[in-house]
Design a protein around this nucleic acid. Structure first.
Lengths: 237, 237
DNA sequence: GCGGGCTCTCAGCCAATTCTCAGCCGCGGT
DNA sequence: ACCGCGGCTGAGAATTGGCTGAGAGCCCGC
C-alpha cells in the first residue's frame, strides 16, 4: 500500500516544533511511500517550502517564531496553490482555526491517530492532484467503505459506525488479507498518546462484528488466535 | 538462509546488560549471517552506534545507566533514521513502547524465542532496506507459508495452525532439506527460558503431521532416527 | 445542567492451546 | 526373529487468550 509504483512519490513537508511529532509523522509518511522533509520552526518551513517544493505541507499552528497562519501566507505567495493540512492543539483555539482554515484544505486536532493522518494526507492530495485512480473507496467482498462519503455498506445495507469503529474498520480493510496484531492496531488506530492496554481492541472488534458480521452473513472479521485479527473470508477447514 | 551472498552483511548492534542475552542473541545473529557488535549499557551503546554504524539496534529497555528510550533518542540524533527493535520485560513496561509497531521499529517481550527474534530482525531490515527478494513467503514443494497472512497451504488446501505449530513449521521450512535436532528445535522455537524436555517437540511434530501430511499426500516431515527431523521429500530406499 | 452517545475498563465465562505422561509401536541391530 | 531404545500419539490437567455484558466517565449538543 505504498504510492503508485511508476509515478514520483508525492512530497510532504512536515512542520512542528516538537521533535517527537515530526519524528513520528515523517516515519509513518515515509513508510507509506511519501518523500518527506521536516522543519522545526516557521522560518525554516518557509525556506524548505522554496527549496523542497512539496506537494503538501503538514503544519502545526503553534510554532516558536511565526505562527502557522503566517507561515501559510508566506508559503502561499511562493507557490501557486500549495495545499496545507493544519495540526492544532485539541482545545479552545480550535474554533479560531475554523475561520482561518477555510482557505486551507483540512486540519486535525492533536493528538491524532496515524490512521487518520495518513487518510487525510491522501485525501488532500487526491483532491488537489486529481489522482483519479485513487477513488477513496476500499472494498473487500461485499463490504465497502467510501472515504468521501464516510459511509460503510455491507451488501446494500448501510452500516452506521462511530468514529473509532470507522477508523478501525478502515485500517483492517486497507490491509485486508493480512493479519494485524493488537499492538499494530493500537498504534495505528488509537491516538498516539493512548496508554491503556490492548483489550480495547477486543471490545471494538466485538462492536464491529455486531454491526458488520450479522446473523446469516459470512463472517469477514477473523480472529487469528495468538496473533491478532484479519479481514478475510472464512477459511475452509 | 544466510544473508544474500553478494551484498555486505547487515550490521546489528545488540544492547543488553545481561551478558547471557547479548551472548545468545549475538551468536544466533552471527550464525544467520549478520555482522554483530554488543554493548552492555547506554553510554557504550551510543558510542558504538557512532563508530560501528549499525543498520539496526536490538535494544533492551531496562539498562543500568540510561534507559532504552533515552539511548534511542541520542542514537537517533547521530544517524538519520536508525531502526530499533526494543526488548521489554513482558509486563508493565510494555505499554510504554507504544508507537513502535509501525514503520521501521518494533518491539518484543522477554523471554522471546530465537525464531521470532530473527524473523523480526529480518522484517525490520526488509522494510528499511527495501530488500525485494524477501517477500515473506517460504515454500517447499507444494507446502507454502505466507508470513503476512500468517497462512499455510498444502497444495490448495489451507491449513489452520496454532502459534507454536506455526513457529515450528516456519523453522523447519526455512531450513528445509537440513536435519534439525530436537535440541536445536527447542532452542529456536521455544522461549529461551523453557525448561521441559524435548518430548514436546515430538508432540508438536505429531500435531503438524496430522495437519500437513494427511492421508494420501507425500509425507514432507521426515524423522531422522537418532538425529531429529527434516522437511524434505521422502528418500528412495 | 441534562441526556445521549461514545470510549474505555473490568470481570466472568468459555474455548483453544500448551505441556506432561504413559503405553504402545516399530526400526535396526544382532 | 527378537530385543531394546527412540519415537509416536491419545488423554487429560493447567494455563492462556479472547469475547462480551455492564457500567463509569467524558464530552457535546440542546
Amino acid at each position: 500500500m505504498t504510492e503508485g509504483g511508476t509515478e514520483a512519490p508525492a512530497r510532504v513537508l512536515v512542520v512542528d516544533d516538537e521533535e517527537s511529532i515530526t519524528q513520528l509523522v515523517s516515519t509513518v509518511l515515509r513508510y507509506e511511500g511519501f518523500a518527506v522533509q521536516t522543519a522545526a520552526d516557521g522560518t525554516a518551513a518557509v525556506k524548505a517550502a522554496r527549496t523542497f517544493r512539496p506537494d503538501l505541507v503538514v503544519l502545526d499552528v503553534m510554532l516558536p517564531d511565526l505562527d502557522g497562519f503566517e507561515v501559510y501566507r508566506r508559503i502561499e505567495g511562493a507557490s501557486a496553490r500549495l495545499p496545507v493540512l493544519f495540526l492544532t492543539a485539541r482545545d479552545s483555539t480550535e474554533d479560531r482555526v475554523h475561520g482561518l482554515t477555510l482557505g486551507a484544505d483540512d486540519y486535525m486536532g492533536k493528538p491524532f491517530s496515524l490512521e487518520e493522518l495518513v487518510a487525510r494526507v491522501r485525501a488532500v492530495l487526491r483532491r488537489t492532484r486529481g489522482d483519479a485512480e485513487a477513488s477513496g473507496v476500499v472494498r473487500y467482498d461485499d463490504l465497502e467503505l467510501n472515504e468521501d462519503a464516510r459511509e460503510v455498506r455491507r451488501g446494500d445495507r448501510v452500516v452506521e459506525l462511530t468514529p473509532t469503529e470507522y477508523n478501525l474498520l478502515h485500517y483492517l480493510l486497507t490491509n485486508a488479507g493480512r493479519v494485524l496484531s493488537k499492538a499494530q492496531i493500537l498504534d495505528h488506530v488509537w491516538r498516539y498518546d493512548f496508554n491503556g492496554d490492548s483489550s480495547v481492541v477486543e471490545t471494538y472488534i466485538s462492536y464491529l462484528r455486531k454491526k458488520i458480521d450479522r446473523g446469516d452473513e459470512v463472517a469477514l472479521i477473523q480472529t487469528v488466535r495468538g496473533f491478532g485479527y484479519s479481514i478475510r473470508r472464512p477459511r475452509g477447514r
